[in-house]
Nucleic acid binder design. Structure first.
Lengths: 144, 144
DNA sequence: CTTCCTGCAAAACATTTGCAGACTT
DNA sequence: AAGTCTGCAAATGTTTTGCAGGAAG
């Protein structure tokens, strides 16, 4: 599934959420920065250039809404702020390599978890909806 | 490696950290609640029964220290507070099943990641030190 | 028009910090 | 005795909330 704007607008519309200019530019910020992991403050700064009157509270409320609709995914890298990335609904695999030295976060995809998931689900009587994998270590630059 | 108190005290001593009564009762709180994932506030409440004069700031400072020494492991389940568990140094495998409905966190162990880790490390030129895996879904009770 | 959404300011939390006194070693 | 550690209170940083006006459907 694509994260294109028309799909998302349609989804908001179906659920009777209003498509306000603020919501539009916040979404655009994520599409323009699809590889980033933006915090509320960072989104706010990006979005302020387009609409200097936007309020930080609106950003927080919009991020909450979009995360609830699973248009965005909440992330936490232990730096004290919640971060978000735009993610494919249904295809849950957002895995990260987090550098312990410089803090850089790389992404990687891997389909390895599917079969494991089933084993874990069975063994623990747990219905798995999503998973998250983080590897902590040192990136190429910092390994030297 | 065991997380017994004598080992930990010895380690603190080697590193010239003082073994104060506050640090002792905070450590004891984790040993008495080895299966829990305690937040600072929760530790504070446990510890206050033994020493009503202890300060919350001391708890925070102690948790920071113990996490830095890798005696405790920081956890984040997206509830806005950092949580900690006492963990085996060296043997990094703290994986969690997080119920999206009731919020309960179960633990599970699995050694599956070792070989995968090597593949990822090689492919991404990343030196992996630790990993963290979370499965989100519904626990047995909430699945019904 | 009706209801939801926004911006602002204040409030609410979690966590950190400065400082003077107390305690470990 | 020296230096670390503690408790308190104030400060900080992030996120939430109340409210009155404004905009989307």
């Amino acid at each position: 599934m694509e994260y294109n704007l028309d799909n998302i607008y349609q989804r908001l519309h179906e659920l009777e959420y209003k498509i306000t200019p603020q919501r539009q530019i916040i979404l655009k910020a994520f599409i323009d920065n699809a590889t980033e992991h933006l915090s509320a403050e960072e989104v706010y700064n990006i979005v302020k250039e387009r609409d200097p009157n936007i309020g930080l509270a609106t950003v927080y409320r919009t991020l909450d809404l979009l995360a609830e609709l699973e248009i965005l995914q909440k992330l936490n890298f232990g730096d004290g702020k919640t971060r978000y990335e735009i993610g494919q609904r249904g295809e849950h695999h957002h895995h990260h390599l987090i550098c312990l030295k410089c803090g850089r976060v790389e992404e990687f995809d891997h389909d390895f978890l599917e079969s494991l998931e089933q084993a874990i689900a069975k063994k623990n009587n747990f219905t798995i909806i999503d998973h998250e994998v983080k590897f902590y270590g040192y990136c190429q630059k910092c390994s030297k």
